[in-house]
Write a protein that binds this DNA or RNA. Structure first.
Lengths: 155, 155
DNA sequence: TGCTGATAGACAGCATACTGATCGTCAGTG
DNA sequence: CACTGACGATCAGTATGCTGTCTATCAGCA
């Protein structure tokens, strides 16, 4: 970059490209999953619950990399749709333990092929080698900056 | 991926990683620029206006890769802060032409070093070669999926 | 047992995104 | 000139994401 360029081009800044990538990823997801009335974030919560049931909301939020102030409404919407259930914790009555309903499990199974297509479409512009390289670099960028987010991934 | 793995791990899905990267990018931006009361999106709008003045809101939104329904409120907040001004178009009275005020230009100059630091911090986990590779791949992914977004970049 | 600090969850308020509708203006045509 | 279709801007409604605050509850300790 020569001295003649006073400021970096907006479209070459990683922050801007990441923002556009996120818009694209959400858009493709909603397109592929429009028949299920499901958002990417809601899918993430359901996918976490598939791995482990009866998580309290804070733990659930951490595993899905969600902010604790966001998880409440999200879980409420999932409950309204009948995909999860909340029970007050027995050992700690502050906690609300969240788990998938049978409808939620069934729905996850059904939606999975669409979610796989989302990832395919996202990476479509890259060939096999490039996809592996891109994913490895992106994963490292995210992992090593994990603590810079208010909603860092945990456990 | 063997048959034993029924579904891809959430944390290996590009969509999820991109979402986390976006959270991190915003968080770092707000941290570096907290003294300026400026968001990444607001910065993008100001940076576009630095390149070309008196853009109507639709064109401005396209160049900053913003949705047309988002640009209104955004521009309003920037106007309240005194960084831009809006005038009704002379040739086409439907348009509102947006341009930087002197305060807006000065503010952009002042904030630029902080914005550069954001990009440095984001790419910190990668070495020089890896940064170039990552940026090239990310740019291609975004460009070739451009039309999948409701707010594709134009011009 | 009663006090204190920490934690889980909820909430208010703001900014970004998107869907879909509406309103005013423009431009081309009969 | 009136009609029609396209376009710029706005708005209502919903979802995510953040800051900051509050309440209920818990856990440790005097």
């Amino acid at each position: 970059m020569g001295d003649f360029m006073l400021h970096g081009d907006l479209h070459l800044k990683p922050g801007h490209l990441i923002r556009r990538a996120q818009q694209i990823a959400v858009s493709i997801f909603l397109d592929e999953c429009k028949e299920f009335d499901l958002t990417p974030t809601q899918y993430a919560v359901l996918a976490v619950l598939r791995e482990k049931s009866d998580l309290d909301q804070i733990t659930l939020a951490s595993r899905a990399a969600l902010d604790r102030s966001t998880i409440g409404g999200l879980v409420e919407r999932l409950e309204e749709k009948g995909w999860i259930r909340r029970t007050v914790g027995v050992e700690d009555r502050r906690q609300k333990l969240v788990s998938l309903t049978e409808a939620g499990q069934a729905m996850l199974e059904t939606v999975e092929p669409s979610v796989e297509r989302v990832q395919q479409r996202l990476l479509e512009p890259l060939n096999g080698d490039e996809r592996a390289v891109f994913m490895a670099l992106l994963e490292r960028l995210v992992d090593e900056n994990n603590e810079s987010s208010r909603a860092p991934f945990k456990k």
